[in-house]
Design a protein around this nucleic acid. Sequence first.
DNA 1: TTGTCGCGGGG
DNA 2: GTGTACGCGACAA
Length: 821
Amino acid sequence: MATGAMTSREDEWLWGWDPTPAIVSVWADLDGRAVVWRRPGGGALVREDVRYRPWLVLAELDDLAHLGDRLQREAGRAPAQAVVYRELEGPGALRYLVHARDGRALTDAVLRGASRRLGRRVRHVRELGDDAVLQLAPEEQYLVATGRTCFRDLTFDQLRRLQLDLETTGLDPAHDRVFLIAVRAPDGTTELLEAAGPGDDAAEAALLARLVERVCHHDPDVIENHNLHGFDLPFLARRAERLRVPLALGRLGPPGLGERAASRGVALEVHDDDDGDEGERGRRARRIRYTVPGRELIDTLDAVRRHDFAARDLPGHGLKAVARHFGLAAPDRPHIPGGQIAATYARDPDRVRRYAADDVAEAAALARLLGGAAFALARMAPRRYERLADAGPATGVLDPLLVRAYLRAGAALPARAAGDGTTHTGAALHLFAAGVAHRVVKADVASLYPSLMRQYRIGPRGDRLGALLALVDRLVDQRLAAKARARAAPAGSDARHTDEALSAAMKLLVNSAYGYLAAVGLTRFADVHAANEVTRRGRALLGQLCRELAARGVTLLEADTDGVYFAAPAGWTDADERRVVAEVAALLPARVRLEHDGRYAAMLSHEPKNYALQGYDGALHLRGVAFRSSRAEPFGEAFLRRAIAALFAGDVAGVQAAYVDTVVALRRRAIATRDVAARVRLRKSPEDYAASRAQRRELPYEAMIAAGRDTWRVGEQVRVYRATGGRAALLREPEGVDAADLDAADEAALPDPRDYDVDAYVRVLRTAFAARLVRALTPEDFAAVFADPDQPSLFAPPLAGARPVLTPLPWPADALAPSAP
DNA sequence: TTGTCGCGGGG
DNA sequence: GTGTACGCGACAA
């Protein structure tokens, strides 16, 4: 967005209005001082110390009446010490915008008045409630008042970013130490800081001091790492406190990390003395994140989670897995299980050095790949980059945009919507047929809910400016423009990255508009009725599109929220499938875009949200708890994959062969012990289990006890199985390593006693795995296929003529029904 | 079997 | 002074 084009009031709502470029960070005090760091053109840092007028919005002026003539209506010139107010127009409850030279004095005046009125000491304005007062964080007051935002005319690559990664002897800063820190400077060079000699306070303290010195030397705008807020910063804070090292990581102010409340932060440990009796269960531990003036502390784990919410394509959220998934990992990257890092360092320090250097390199690459969206949000919303990187998009981005829009328009803000007890209704979900289908097509509506909001102008009742819909309209339009610019820019260029990031940020906001409506009690303009109208329209639309598809001769399989799986008749080509989708798309409202979203050779439809798909390339995709579970025994999953592949080939005898082979292999103990073992996490401590053992015995703990392991730590992952004679058995793993950390090579070296209970696992095969194929065959064929291979029935029908079946299920009686309006 | 809760990550 | 864009596994009832 070129700053010169900021003309319309709606564009100001989205972007702010002050064109000041290249702000990389803002720090403000309640007393009216703000420091703005800018990097014009991505060059040298400029620091600007400015004054602003702290402000808040009140429902009533009563609490300020005691100021007498020092409270003045905004008009012309007021004395410097006056508290000035402006009455906002319109019906909102929060209607007095009050500002003063000193925000502390302003707050004190409100608290004094409120204390007098209520007859008790009011210590903080938030005690007055959301419907009486709105007060933002100081730097947000500054940004809202000025119409400025961060990063105007800057690209992501013009920021100075530094990555740091701690290597420690363990996860608990109460006992463990930092022994190595990898620091990746903004120019891409990596420094490895190491404690001189392990295990002593002086060496560790010197290491922390050296880190502070290197950060100040490089003077980054942004500090990044994976799980920075969940691990590195809390660990650093604890160690620095214990070792009395001043952590002067910021660009101003006293050393030490500041704290801010954050629901996704770390739980501040409750000290024994201030916990008392009340803290036990009723109150939740306060969660915080650390902050420093002038530098944005960015956690790539936030960006990964945000990405995966929409994409859901990541194998996990750990740095290594994500880096590998996105092709960011070096091919020769060393991998060291967490529990072995300190030991490896003692034996082979170079390996740990390479490991740590790769960590910061991957964090940097990941931050660039996924962090651009938050960077783009910071160009729109009046909040710091680090806040926008971990904020929920509804409460954390849209809400601040709307508050700024209303104040810019001089309009009173409604009190936060409380809700009238109306429950929130959800989306439609229906299974139309169960069993095996071929020529399967997935058709879905892109961004269904925001499209319906725009199509039918469904916005919050309290939003009399129509700001939410105006924002969504602009976001959709400007996102298309950003996508077009990104496509036109050279691949890999800074310009393309910037526009792709902007597009991602806008998509995030558009898709959170509906969540904003439904977030009763959290967002200022929440409106369940509007949210329910959106889902009602969504259900009706899904019903319409199901009926229209069915009328064109396809077989509906499953419909969920905004999309449908259907099977095309025999003989249809890809073009036929697309034609039918296009025909139905043409019948839908203008802003609702139905798309052909994929085609598959076959589908096993088992239960809603539980199915197996086979692509035309042969690849098998399993979805839902019935088909994939980390606990599932590997032999069963292997059986299931083979049986489903046979099923899709129409080879019922092949399904039986898969079953018989598996049973026979179990009976011959040809299957490895680890393939019948289940991976479980121990949740109970030895003491807890000892207490509950009399009532109910549980396999994993019995296995631990039977193996002589009478102590374990909560959270430890183990592999357990049922051994002969009903014994619970533990599959031993190398010392000190979680099963989760093992790779394939390690697994091959595991012990393999093959003393599992064959009959128990034959039962598991039948009841837990074969059962998932029950919809795919007639009852007679199912019984024949999964009969006990040792007791063949003389009357079993031959399987040669057996075929997989697809059973139609009744249409629902709701909005999806054929007769619905 | 069915609901509630907590986690995902880091060494 | 935070946050209701999930999915899964563990546990209690």
